[in-house]
Each structure stands twice: as C-alpha cells, then as structure tokens.
C-alpha cells in the first residue's frame, strides 16, 4: 500500500496536473496542426502535457521520499484576506471615488493586517500617501485619474 510521505509535494504535483488539464480544456478549440505547420494550439498543448508529466513525477517522488520536518508557519488568514482584497478594492473603487479617497481607504484598510498596526499611525500614513500619490501621479505623471471621483459630493470631478 502506497503511503503519501510528503503531503505538500503530493498536492503540488496534483496542482500541476490540474493546471495542465485546464490549459488543454480551454485550448480545446485551438487548432493544433502538425509539427511542420504548427497551429496556435501546438505549443500550449505540448507544454501542458510536459507539465502534467512533471506533475506525475512530483507525485511519484512524494510517495517515495520522506518530507523533512519543518515547523509550519501559523497561517494568518486575516492578513491574506486583507492583502489580497486590497488591490481588488482599489480596482473597484478607483473610477468612482477617485485616487485620493481610494488610496486612503486602501492604506487604512490594509494596515490592519499587521499585528502592530495602530489607528493613529494608519490614518496619518493614509493621508500622507493619498496626498503624495495625487501629487506624483495626477500632477507630475499626469495619469488620467482624478483626485476625487464622481461619487464624492462637492469635490468630485464629474467630467
């Protein structure tokens, strides 16, 4: 009876095989062609097969080679959630709120991911970076974002 000796590598190998299958599935309508005249699907399909083969080897290795004992990091779910959500929030809010408020909320929000955060520091940092980014990006580098978007009453730039 085979035993999984290295769970992390086993999952890694399965993930690689899954990734290969995904590329094959989504590329199923691409013309593969032949090795003389390769179609758009040839290279990705070939790579997917190679990736799946490597994935299988990784799985095989995880059944044979014992994993070294490492102290696992305690997962910090709050930090993962906030740090990954932050850019998404930024993208969603930017066009409506404008750069300054978006930046401020992003900084204050994401700062709470740290164990050492304190509100006073975060708010000051948020204000500081909001002002800096507006000056640097809308004034100096003239990106097409307004400092305040249409959702902000009175200050908002509706144009």
């Amino acid at each position: 009876m085979l035993k999984i000796r290295n769970g992390r590598d086993f999952v890694g190998g399965v993930t690689m095989i899954f990734a290969g299958l995904l590329f094959i599935w989504f590329g199923r309508n691409l013309e593969v062609g032949n090795s003389f005249q390769m179609g758009p699907g040839y290279f990705p399909t070939a790579l997917s097969l190679v990736l799946m083969a490597i994935g299988a080897l990784i799985i095989l290795q995880s059944l044979v080679v014992e994993a070294e004992r490492v102290e696992p990091q305690r997962p910090n779910w709050k930090a993962y959630f906030l740090v990954i959500l932050a850019p998404i929030g930024f993208g969603v809010l930017l066009s409506g709120l404008g750069l300054a408020p978006t930046m401020f909320f992003l900084i204050v929000g994401v700062a709470t991911a740290s164990r050492y955060a304190n509100w006073r520091h975060s708010i000051l940092l948020g204000l500081f970076l909001a002002v800096c980014s507006v000056l640097l990006f809308t004034r100096l580098l003239s990106l097409p974002i307004s400092a305040f978007g249409p959702w902000v009453p009175f200050l908002g730039d509706l144009s």
């Binding site: 932050a86 750069l99 700062a111 520091h121 980014s133 990006f137 990106l143 097409p144």
Partner: peptide
C-alpha cells in the same frame, strides 16, 4: 514594517493601473 507594507501595496496598485490606465 507595519507602515512600510501598506505603502508598497498602494504603489503596486497605482503602478499596475498606470501600465495601460486600466484597472
């Protein structure tokens, strides 16, 4: 670090936006 990393995230967001001016 708790002041540094929010700033890095902020700049990454603006940086990514400014590549093609798209979110």
């Amino acid at each position: 670090y708790h002041l540094l990393f929010p700033a890095i995230i902020g700049f990454c967001c603006i940086g990514a936006y400014s590549i093609n001016n798209s979110v």
